[in-house]
Write a protein that binds this DNA or RNA. Sequence first.
DNA 1: CTTCGGCTGGTCAATCTGTGCAATCGGTAG
DNA 2: CTACCGATTGCACAGATTGACCAGCCGAAG
Lengths: 161, 161
Amino acid sequence: MTEHSVQLDELDAKLIELLAAEPRIGVLELSRRLAVARGTVQARLDKLTARGAIKGFGPEVVPALIGFGVMSFVTLEISQRYGHDAVAGHLAEIPEVLEAHTITGSGDILCRIVARSNADLQRVIDQIVGYEGIRRAHTIIALAELIPYRTVPLTKAATRI
Amino acid sequence: MTEHSVQLDELDAKLIELLAAEPRIGVLELSRRLAVARGTVQARLDKLTARGAIKGFGPEVVPALIGFGVMSFVTLEISQRYGHDAVAGHLAEIPEVLEAHTITGSGDILCRIVARSNADLQRVIDQIVGYEGIRRAHTIIALAELIPYRTVPLTKAATRI
DNA sequence: CTTCGGCTGGTCAATCTGTGCAATCGGTAG
DNA sequence: CTACCGATTGCACAGATTGACCAGCCGAAG
């Protein structure tokens, strides 16, 4: 377990912030904007990615713009004798399931699901509950995105020691 | 809806998949792996980003590894006379709020919140409900991440017409 | 005082990028 | 059938960037 969290300093935060704003700029340009040596930027980025604090620089696909305009959160209640892992394996096979977590409270698993339409969402949910390990699904549809997923404010907050 | 979604073809999907696997490779390397001309890759990427299907290539920060090991989903019930926007503005000021959506069902807003610990989560929630427009918060803590956020399977599914 | 790790500023060859261009291909409209 | 259109290809160029080095500087720790 790499539960060792990294303590970010101000340079790290600015680095991430700049990179988030203009992801395609290179190490050299970053060093210029931050007024530090290029090697320093490289070293910091290497450290952050090596320790896992930065998972990657993958393309952020917007599901709504590739045909999946409906987003929902679905809470699942599972049969205890089927493990979480078995259910997770089933969910992983469904591309519309973007993420899944085990949770506290009334429900066992919370997952994020997208679909092409409300009717299509029904199809996806049917596919999910078709698995015998899942007893019941409770669906919440997201109407509007008030705050899109973000982490920049968090990185700034993380530097206050 | 108003936003016409982009219909991905197989090349787009492979492009995204490759880029997701090795985000730091350049256009030239992509063109070699996909056995197409460099200009084609550039044109495809430009098109995808221009139409918004790819939001960006920002660094994916893992909150758990910069000190925020607790993740939770919080459902908010708001006073009707305060608009969603006012509440959204309040939430946006709290760095631990990673995203927020208006939702159907019993609750008005669902947001994703991280914190340094369970005690720290209490502090964040207090900060949230301290705003008068918010009447009540219902908190669900995520225990384990069964499926980390992903979109690659979705892009593949999006190509099947 | 000495060692150590991090940062700086510089060099080098190799590679990649942005940008044009003409030619080719496939499908479509007339 | 033929002309046209967008997409793709292959190629070229100058300029920028990268990865790899290295010597020197500095503050903190021993």
